[in-house]
Design a protein around this nucleic acid. Structure first.
Lengths: 190, 190, 190, 190
DNA sequence: GATGAATGAGAATTCATTCAT
DNA sequence: GATGAATGAATTCTCATTCAT
C-alpha cells in the first residue's frame, strides 16, 4: 500500500488523463486504443467509458486543462503594459506551462495536431487562443517575417521533442536552450 | 491491347503515392485507410495491393523518394569544403527539396513522425540521414544551444504549415520568410 | 424522514412504470435502455434497480397490471350467461381496458409482442389469458374464419395506432370507429 | 452439391436478405445481431459488411424489395377504372405480395414497425405508398369508420401472424380466411 | 431509498490483408 | 493489371447488472 498501485486516491478520472496523455504523446491519438489505456490502469474499458463519454472526450479534457492555463496567461498579459518586456515574460510563462508535465504536452500536441483539427474543429477555441497569444507576441506593424517569428517563438518549444531526440544532453539543458532560442526568435521592436 | 485502356501512361503507382501523400498529410497515417486511398483513385483496394505490398510500403516509397533527394544532398555536401557558406547552401537546398511538393511533404512528416518511428524503426534510415544533416549543419564544438539551433533551422521549415495557418500573406511570402528565419537560426562559427 | 424529501407520495415505482411504458411503446423494448429510463426520471440507474430487480421485471409489472384487469374481465365473463350479448360486452370492456392509458398499452403490445414472447415465455400467463378471451369470444363450432374473426376483433383495437396515423380525425372519433368495426368483426351465431 | 449448403449460386446478398428477414421476423430487429445472421450463413461478420454497409442497410434492402412490388401495384391500380371491383382486386394482389415469402414479411413488419419508423424516417417512402394504397381502397366521401375500414382491410393481413399463433389450422387455411375477412372489411359504396 | 464506480459480455463497425479468377 | 469476395483481428462503444457506502 501507499506507493505503486494506489487506487481511489487522486481520482480515476485524473489518472486516466495522465495515462492517456502519455500514450497519445508516445504513439499518437489514433494509434492508442481505449483497451491500451484501460490495461495500463488495470481497469476495464467500460470503466473508462464511465468517466469519459468517448475517446475524443479524453482529448477534449486534456485540451481544456491546457486551455485553462493558456486562458489565465492571456488574461494576465492583457492586464499588463504591452511591450518587449511583457512579450519576453509571456513567452517564458508559456514555456512554464508547456514544461508542466515534462515534455509530454508538447509531444502530444505536435504528434496530434492533425488529429485534433478533425476531432474538435475548435469547439475548444484552442486556435483562437493561440491567435490571441500570437497577437500579444507580435509588435505593432510587424513584417511578415516578424509575424512568423512570433509564431515560431511559441511553437519552437513544441518542436523540441521532435528535434532533440538524438541530442547528447540532459532534458534540463535542452529545455534551457530551447527557451533561449525561443527568446531570440521573438521579434524586437516597439 | 496496350494502347486502349492506358490511364495516364502507366502512372498508377505514382498516382497512388501522390494521393496517399496528400491524405497522410491531411488526416495522418493511422487515420487514412486503404479504402480511402483506393476510393479517391477510383480503383479497388485489391488494385492497391497489386502495386504496394502493404500500407507501410506506401509510406516507405514516399520516404524513399525524399530519402533519395536527401541522400544526394548529403553526398554533395560531403564533397564540399565545410564551413558557414556550405551550411547556408545546404539549408537552402533542403528547403528546395521540402518545397518540391508544396508544403505537403512537411506536413506529412510533422503529422506522422510519431507513427513513422513505430512503423519503420528506421528500415528507411531516415533519422540516420537527418542526423548526418544535423552534423553537417553544426559547427565543430558547438554548444548544446547551437546544436539545437542547427536542428531547429532544419525543422523550422516543417513548422511553417503548423504555425502560419492564420497569417495574412501569400504562400510564397511565407516560404521566403521561413527560409530567412531558418538561415538566421543556423549557428555561426568556425 | 417521512415528510421532508417525499417526491409525489412515494410513487417512484409507479413513475418508473409510466415512463417505461411510454418508452417501450415509442421505441420498443430492446431499443429502450435502463439508462434512458433513468435519465427521463432524473434518477440513477442504480435507483432503478432498487425498485425493480431487472429490466424484464419492469415489463412483468407492466403486464401484470394489464393482466389483473384482464383476469377480472375473464372472471366476470365466466360468471355470465354465454352468448352473443356477452361477447359484445366483453369486447367493449376489453376496449375500455386498452383505452385506459390512451393508446399506450396497445402500442406497447403491438410494438413488443415478439420481444415478450422471448423474454417471459409466459411466466406472466398473458397468452394463456388471451387464449381464454379468444375462447369466450368464439361461438361453439366456429369455422376457421370465425375463429380468426374473434381474434381479430380483439386485436384490431391494437392496430389502430398503426393504421390511423394519417387519418384526419380526432382520437375519440377514431376510437369510436375502432370499437364499431371490432364489434362487426365479432362472429355471429349461437 | 446441389442441395443444402450451396454457396455462390443464388448470390450471398440474396441469402443474407432471406436469413435476415427470417430472424428479424422471429426475434425482432434489435434482438437480432449481425453475428447471428452471419453464423446462420456460415460466413463472417465482415463478409456481411462487404455486402451491406450496415445493419440498417439490410432492412432498407428488405423494404425496397417490398416497395418495388407495392409500387408496381399502385401503378397498375392507377391505370384501371376506379370502383369496388378494382378495390377488391387491389386487396387481393396486396395479399399475394405479402404472402410471397410465407407470412414472414407480415411478421417482419408487424414485429418491427416501430424500429422501422426510427431507422428510415421514410427515406424509402413506405408510408407514402401506404397512404396512396389507402386512398385507392377508400371510396369517395367515406366516413371516418370507412376510412379506418379501408386501412384495416390492408393491415389485417399483417396481423395474422400476431393473432393466429394458437389457431388449430394449416397456414393455407389461415391465409384464405384472412383474405376473406380482409375483403369483408373493405368499405362498400361508389 | 439512493448513489458512484465498476464490470463482463456483447454490440456494430472498420481495417489491413489475401486469393482465386 | 485488376477485381469481387471474403477473413480475422481489432476498434469504439453500449448494456444490463452489481455492490460497497
Amino acid at each position: 500500500m501507499g506507493g505503486a498501485a494506489t487506487r481511489k486516491a487522486g481520482g480515476t478520472r485524473a489518472q486516466i488523463q495522465t495515462v492517456a496523455l502519455r500514450l497519445f504523446a508516445e504513439h499518437g491519438y489514433e494509434a492508442t486504443s481505449m483497451r491500451e489505456i484501460a490495461e495500463q490502469l488495470n481497469i476495464t474499458k467500460a470503466a473508462l467509458y464511465y468517466h469519459f463519454a468517448s475517446k475524443e472526450d479524453i482529448v477534449r479534457a486534456l485540451i481544456e486543462t491546457m486551455l485553462a492555463q493558456t486562458s489565465e496567461l492571456i488574461q494576465w498579459a492583457e492586464e499588463q503594459e504591452p511591450g518587449p518586456v511583457l512579450r519576453r515574460e509571456v513567452l517564458s510563462r508559456w514555456a512554464d506551462i508547456m514544461q508542466d508535465q515534462g515534455l509530454r504536452m508538447f509531444r502530444f500536441i505536435s504528434a496530434n495536431h492533425v488529429a485534433m483539427r478533425e476531432i474538435s474543429p475548435d469547439k475548444s477555441g484552442m486556435s483562437a487562443q493561440l491567435k490571441r497569444l500570437f497577437e500579444i507576441l507580435t509588435p505593432p506593424n510587424a513584417s511578415v517575417a516578424d509575424q512568423l517569428r512570433a509564431r515560431l517563438s511559441l511553437v519552437v518549444i513544441n518542436m523540441v521533442g521532435m528535434a532533440a531526440g538524438d541530442l547528447n544532453a540532459s532534458e534540463d539543458e535542452i529545455l534551457a536552450a530551447a527557451r533561449q532560442i525561443s527568446a531570440e526568435l521573438l521579434p524586437r521592436g516597439d
